[in-house]
Amino acid sequence: MVAFSKGDKVEVCSKEEGFLGSYYEAKVVSPMANNTRYKVQYKNLVEEEDQTRPLVEVVSADELRPVPPPVRASGVFNYLEKVDAFDNDGWWVGTITGKQELKYWVFFETTGDEIAYDVCRLRNHLEWRNDHWVSFKKRF
């Protein structure tokens, strides 16, 4: 497992009900408990009591991953391809189910929703496994 340092940009994988399959951009404020927990500050999430302040919380190491490498997206996604869609301040894992003009329809298994997105709000889905990025892009 990767040990993160103060200032590292990461994504936090939410394990809370209703948020499964979502990733939120953050930076490490400080490592804790021998790198088994980290204090992070979110890029897009804010404190409930003071919405001008970024949300800071402690998460376990298994909820963190590095920010995925920039992937040159061609803007073309294939039917049933896994993608991440930016919505509600985070990246949500879904599957392409169709295309309509300049938008792609994405189905989210965790919520049962199917939503149309502009291509600029989509990215290729990558999984962080054994300290490496794994692509699930379908090849046709």
Rank of each mutant, 00 (worst) to 15 (best):
Val40Ile: 15
Leu80Arg: 11
Ile96Lys: 04
Val46His: 11
Ala33Asp: 15
Pro69Leu: 00
Phe19Lys: 14
Ile115Trp: 06
Tyr24Ser: 10
Phe136His: 14
Glu127Cys: 07
Trp105Lys: 15
Val40Ala: 03
Phe77Arg: 04
Tyr23Met: 02
Arg37Ile: 04
Thr36His: 09
Pro69Phe: 03
Gly112Ile: 10
Arg121Thr: 08
Tyr23Pro: 03
Ser5Thr: 12
Ala33Trp: 14
Cys120Asn: 12
Glu47Pro: 03
Pro69Lys: 06
Arg53Trp: 03
Gly7Ala: 08
Trp128Met: 03
Leu64Arg: 05
Asp62Pro: 07
Lys6Thr: 14
Glu49Ser: 12
Asn88Ser: 14
Phe19Ile: 06
Glu109Pro: 00
Gln41Met: 08
Val29Tyr: 11
Ala61Gln: 11
Ala61Ile: 08
Leu55Thr: 05
Phe77Asn: 01
Val67Gly: 02
Lys137Asp: 04
Asp8Thr: 07
Trp92Arg: 12
Thr52Gln: 04
Phe4Pro: 04
Trp91Cys: 06
Val10Arg: 06
Val2Tyr: 08
Ala116Tyr: 00
Asn34His: 12
Val28Phe: 07
Thr52Ser: 13
Asp50Met: 04
Thr95Val: 10
Phe86Pro: 00
Val56His: 03
Glu127His: 11
Tyr38Pro: 03
Gly7Tyr: 05
Gly90Asp: 00
Val28Trp: 08
Glu114Cys: 15
Glu63Tyr: 09
Tyr79Met: 09
Asp89Ile: 08
Lys27Gly: 02
Glu17Gln: 14
Ala116Asn: 03
Tyr23Gln: 04
Asn124Arg: 13
Val29Ser: 10
Lys99Ala: 09
His132Ile: 09
Asn34Ser: 11
Phe140Trp: 11
Gly90His: 07
Pro66His: 04
Leu20Phe: 06
Lys138Met: 10
Asn78Ile: 13
Asn44Met: 08
Asp62Leu: 05
Glu47Arg: 13
Glu114Thr: 12
Glu11Ser: 05
His132Met: 13
Asp113Met: 13
Pro69Arg: 06
Val59Ala: 02
Pro66Asp: 00
Lys15Cys: 04
Val40Ser: 06
Pro68Lys: 00
Tyr23Asp: 01
Glu49Asp: 11
Trp105Glu: 00
Leu64His: 05
Phe77Thr: 03
Gly94Tyr: 01
Val93Ile: 10
Ala73Asn: 12
Val93Trp: 01
Val56Pro: 02
Val67Pro: 02
Lys137Val: 13
Val76Asp: 10
Arg129Trp: 07
Val76Tyr: 11
Lys27Tyr: 09
Ala33Tyr: 14
Pro54Asn: 15
Thr52Tyr: 05
Phe140Met: 13
Glu25Phe: 08
Ser22Ala: 13
Val29Asp: 11
Leu122Met: 08
Thr52Met: 00
Ser22Tyr: 05
Ser135Tyr: 01
His132Gly: 10
Asp89Cys: 15
Arg53Pro: 00
Asp84Thr: 02
Glu57Asn: 08
Glu49Asn: 12
Phe4Ser: 07
Lys15Gly: 10
Ala61Gly: 01
Cys13Asp: 08
Val119Tyr: 02
Val71Ile: 12
His125Trp: 03
Gly94Thr: 07
